[in-house]
């Protein structure tokens, strides 16, 4: 009975599916976006360690600070990093005094103690970097309809994120392919999902920022530095994670080896030649 029912059910599903298989397909024009979209270029990052494997490696503190400078002087005109607190910058080498001074440059919402009216106050190290626009509508109104995303998590919210940020920032130079229209107010960028991006080229020329450590601020260098900085904002615990990982894996390998040896020893009387001969 069960097998008969199963046969019926099986024929039902097979026929329903085969009907779909033989159904004529609508001709689908090749998607020009898919055709011209480029995957981000691979770059060797210091935090990925030898071979870009992602096992060892640490952030380059000087690079993080340069990246922060690029963010602050260029990106922050439109993009927030609202998940990062000023105090977090201690991890990339800022002193408490520097952090305090930096935070004081920002205003955050507060309430007037005496009147209870809405007011603002200077940010403290415990505050997060404030939003650039109070809400999405304000952002779109100011940006000609575009919404600059918060960048705190951007390298984890895009495929191959660090490479993506670097490639996107340096990817404006390519001319659009023949037949591809770039609408007014948009820019062609083959690394952007839809190829047409609303963000104007943010890194327009070399030496757009002046690095304090004397590094030559080429566009490529600035793009790399800010990509690394945004990798840190997305994964501030990256170094602790890898350090813990190396220790954990070494511990577990030793534990596993001991486990294997005790397993062999326990089973010796069952698997060993003596045991077999005895049987």
């Amino acid at each position: 009975m069960i097998r008969l029912g199963a046969l019926g059910a099986g024929l039902f599903f097979v026929l329903a599916l085969m009907l779909g298989v033989v159904q004529p397909r609508d001709a689908v024009a090749p998607d020009p976006v898919e055709e011209h979209h480029k995957h981000p270029q691979k770059v060797e990052w210091s935090f990925n360690g030898p071979g870009n494997l992602g096992i060892f490696g640490t952030f380059d503190r000087a690079q993080l600070q340069r990246g922060f400078q690029v963010y602050k002087e260029v990106c922050s005109a439109c993009h927030s990093i609202n998940r990062v607190a000023f105090r977090d910058l201690a991890a990339i080498g800022f002193s408490p005094a520097e952090i305090k001074a930096l935070a004081a440059q920002y205003e955050v919402a507060s309430i007037d103690d005496k009147t209870g009216e809405a007011a603002t106050r200077k940010a403290t190290p415990a505050d997060k970097f404030p939003l650039i626009y109070p809400n999405e509508a304000a952002a779109r109104a100011a940006q000609n309809g575009a919404l600059p995303p918060d960048l705190s998590l951007i390298t984890k919210a895009r495929e191959d994120g660090t490479n993506y940020v670097h490639s996107l920032l340096t990817g404006y130079d390519e001319a659009p392919p023949k037949g591809w229209t770039v609408l007014d107010g948009l820019y062609y960028n083959p690394y952007f999902a839809s190829l047409n991006i609303k963000m104007p080229p943010p890194l327009a020329a070399d030496d757009q920022v002046t690095y304090a450590d004397g590094t030559k601020a080429t566009r490529d260098q600035m793009a790399k530095d800010v990509a690394v900085f945004l990798t840190w904002t997305a994964e501030p615990k990256l170094e602790a994670r890898k350090e813990t990982g190396v220790a954990a894996v070494i511990f577990l390998l030793i534990l596993t080896l001991l486990g294997y040896l005790s397993y062999r020893r326990v089973w010796a009387d069952v698997k060993g030649p003596k045991a077999v001969a005895a049987e």
Binding site: R241, K242, G245, V246, A248, V249, Y260, Y263, V266
Partner: peptide
């Protein structure tokens, strides 16, 4: 004893992914 050895192999692989490629199996979106 055999399960303990298997557990060691399992936890080692688990640790490799957790600590070195934790987002490998997830969706960026």
């Amino acid at each position: 004893a055999k399960d303990f050895f298997g557990l060691g192999v399992y936890l080692t692989l688990f640790a490799v992914v957790v600590f070195f490629a934790p987002n490998m199996l997830g969706e960026v979106d």
